[in-house]
Amino acid sequence: MIVPYSHVLLLSALLFVVGMLCAVGRRNLIMILLGLEVMLNAGAIAFVGAALRWQQIEGQTVVIFVLAIAAAEVSIGLALIVWAYRRTESLDPERLQDLDTAEPL
């Protein structure tokens, strides 16, 4: 026996909070994306723990998909960040706020 399930959940939750704080609190597009990755990872941990708790392999199946989706999302996200960087010459999300009043590209 390893640990009570609630401890796994607690770890997952704390990791999720850290990731959320990174996504919301850092004024940097790359950090937003990193926060997203951390949150996804936290979710994966919760699922693996759940698979072990109920002794079913479904939980691990979900993690496979989470991984696939994280990969797709990061690739597109980084491409968009590159585009935003070329547009505003910085990685500040607040520079993207008034795009409609700026000149179109």
């Binding site: 399930y5 796994v8 072990l52």
Partner: peptide, 14 residues
């Protein structure tokens, strides 16, 4: 986490 009660305290069997 702690409101789930004893069900959440199940130890995980390896």
């Amino acid at each position: 986490v702690f409101a789930t009660g004893p069900r959440g305290q199940t130890p995980l069997t390896p």
